[in-house]
Nucleic acid binder design. Structure first.
Lengths: 214, 214
DNA sequence: GCCTACTACATTATCGATAATCTAGGAAAC
DNA sequence: GTTTCCTAGATTATCGATAATGTAGTAGGC
């Protein structure tokens, strides 16, 4: 769908993100501009602009004349992000409930199925992607662009993955935990949907961070 | 307090922000890189990097090869930001209440006094700045860095100013509306403080956007 | 031994110039 | 008249090189 594959800065940015997520760049590691310049055979300017973007996305920390480091997203920071996410999704649920139509419910149901399939295969990555799409669909349906931008900026899915691989969660239970959300949306009750979503996030965060397997 | 006054990109960024806020750059207006290059006698690189930052801060929109435009922050977008802010500040209130000490209460009281003074002088700008500091103090006290970053990214104070000058609000009433927050914090009740803050934001947004003067 | 000054090196920040892309306007085809 | 093609000018994207800054190591003074 994206009609732009030509802006180097974007390609560099995506490359770095991939490397952070797959562990090629470890937390705290320096990212040296000239090193990327040599490796990718590009000039310094697009590399620097990509790093500016990544800084805004909170993937890296930079200091003037001292360069960029992969953000050490500690368990503590992940823990801090969940209360924020819970509030945002409560709002999303409240706003989305009156707007939930058959199409949305259908797509959410499909993602739920994907989650269950992934859970049976013990495929954490696939589960998390479907999970992220499920929640994103609801936030989009809320129809508030500031909410969507704010929620997206948390990049929970990226950061969750890092912690998830070290936990030992009951994947099937995680998938099934989305059913109450679907039910609440189907009922169209704004207040209830918001409450269910906030509790859903709080429960998930609790399990993820304590390692309890439900 | 800031020990860096030497990075050109930062200075350029601040200049552009000032111009957006004081109206020199109007919403929708193009910001041409070479124009700034000539005016400031700098090279294109730091200008471009400053624009990358501003894009992340949502002050401008950019498209590849088409340049940057001042974001037309419509009344509609401002309206959308208030529900998000209300949720974030509810959380801030909940987290801050048990941590509120005498020093915090003293500083909040001082800001409240500044608001009252500004209100009597009909100084909207001074009122808004004290208002912003009041709320920021509480969000900082919450002790959640993700919450603080997320809240800051809304840049409500900047955007509010634009709408405020066109409204006709009772400034004294706005200042006094902060008293219940102070009382709730003094009591240390997390749930109550959160509730009071959310309602405070909702009320303010309502008055600002409808133009009612309480 | 410990502190300071200095030096060589690595890296980031900025520069001036070139390449790639977009846009408006007019000419040519229909 | 309308559409398509093309061109000139404006602007953004990228380049290669230089200047500014940070860092580690070393020598000299105490």
């Amino acid at each position: 769908m994206s009609l732009e594959r030509t802006v180097m800065r974007e390609q560099i940015k995506e490359l770095i993100i991939r490397r952070i997520l797959d562990g090629s760049y470890k937390p705290g590691e320096r990212i040296v501009e000239l090193q990327l310049v040599h490796e990718l055979q590009v000039s310094q300017a697009p590399v620097r602009e990509a790093l500016r973007d990544l800084q805004a996305m909170r993937f890296i920390d930079t200091e003037p004349y001292k360069g960029a480091r992969v953000r050490a997203l500690s368990r503590a920071e992940l823990a801090e992000s969940y209360p924020v996410r819970a509030m945002l999704e409560e709002l999303a649920g409240q706003l989305a409930a009156p707007r939930a139509d058959a199409e949305l419910l259908g797509r959410l149901g499909a993602e739920l199925q994907s989650m269950r399939t992934a859970a049976r295969r013990h495929d954490q990555h696939a589960l998390l992607m479907a999970d992220a799409r499920f929640h994103e669909l609801i936030v989009q349906t809320a129809g508030n662009s500031v909410l969507l931008d704010t929620w997206s900026s948390l990049r929970i899915e990226a950061f969750t993955l890092v912690s998830m691989v070290t936990s030992n969660l009951d994947l099937v239970a995680i998938a099934d935990a989305h059913l109450p959300i679907l039910d609440a949306l189907r009922g169209g009750d704004a207040h209830l949907t918001g409450k269910v979503m906030r509790e859903h996030i709080a429960t998930f965060a609790d399990h993820l961070l304590t390692g309890v397997t439900t």
